[in-house]
Design a protein around this nucleic acid. Structure first.
Length: 264
DNA sequence: ATGGTAGCGTAGCTA
């Protein structure tokens, strides 16, 4: 079974690129972040035409928004609210075989990496803390699961173009990397990218729109992640960062799709 | 040190 996660940065604007992605990768399940559309206006029809009959969409006007598009049935679909906000950042669906699929969009955190000065950074840390607490107490701990999405943190040295220069830049500061580690440790999640790609190798899933030439400067970050519970480790069959999509014209997303194959 | 681009929606917020 092939899973793809992609921060698409507006699903309506990039529906043609989503169709191209489907043509190239033929995923069974697609998880999207930053759909930026209320549920009633989600472009369901073109996806159903392509065989994605099982849709779990959770969006709002203008910002955020997550979605799961599937060719296989989804059960027990639900959404979670964190930090007292209804901001459409976390949905879950059940797959055959008792597997939970989490699609997540963690707050970006603003510019200043200080929770006292910057409410957005405080929100990011609190969001991760609430998720970690919930992971440890909700009973979901014992379930087999796949977690994907834009976690907006690049935890390892080679998840950013320059570890030294990025230590004070939101997405790679020690305080948020520590919070992400605690979340990962709460269920002993396996970081699938680093299962397949050695930690001494640079690996990015996002490149800023602001670079003159994203490909040449290659100042990327690994913000988009795929995690699985340890019982799925023997089923890990393939992984890819679909870097080519960053150059798709016109108007690429600043994030690229990330692919997981599971031998279920 | 600064400012650079993009999406939504049509100003200014968010990333």
């Amino acid at each position: 079974m092939r899973f793809v996660t992609w921060n698409i940065n507006s699903v309506r604007l990039r529906i043609a690129l989503l169709e191209r992605l489907i043509d190239r990768l033929n995923p069974d399940v697609i998880c999207l972040q930053e759909t930026k559309v209320p549920d009633a206006e989600f472009p369901k029809q073109p996806l159903q035409t392509l065989g994605y009959d099982h849709l779990h969409v959770h969006g709002m006007k203008g910002y955020n928004g997550v979605a799961i598009l599937s060719r296989v049935p989804l059960s027990d679909t639900r959404a979670h609210d964190w930090c007292g906000k209804r901001d459409c950042r976390h949905i879950v669906a059940g797959l055959a075989g008792g597997i939970d699929l989490h699609c997540l969009y963690v707050p970006s955190g603003g510019d200043v990496p200080d929770p006292e000065q910057n409410p957005k950074f405080k929100h990011k840390l609190q969001f991760l803390d609430e998720l970690t607490e919930w992971s440890a107490t909700s009973g979901i701990l014992s379930r087999t699961a796949v977690l994907v999405g834009d976690l907006n943190i690049a935890p390892l040295e080679n998840d950013v173009w320059s570890h030294k220069d990025m230590l004070t830049v939101v997405s790679h500061t020690p305080v948020e990397v520590d919070r992400l580690d605690r979340l990962r440790a709460a269920r002993d999640w396996v970081d699938v990218a680093r299962h397949f790609v050695p930690a001494d190798e640079k690996l990015y899933t996002w490149w800023s729109y602001r670079a003159k030439d994203w490909e040449r400067s290659d100042r990327g970050r690994r913000l988009d992640h795929i995690w699985v519970t340890p019982d799925l480790t023997p089923k890990l069959a393939g992984f890819e960062v679909f870097r080519a999509a960053r150059g798709w014209q016109p108007k690429p997303s600043d994030h690229v799709p990330v692919v997981l194959d599971l031998a279920l």
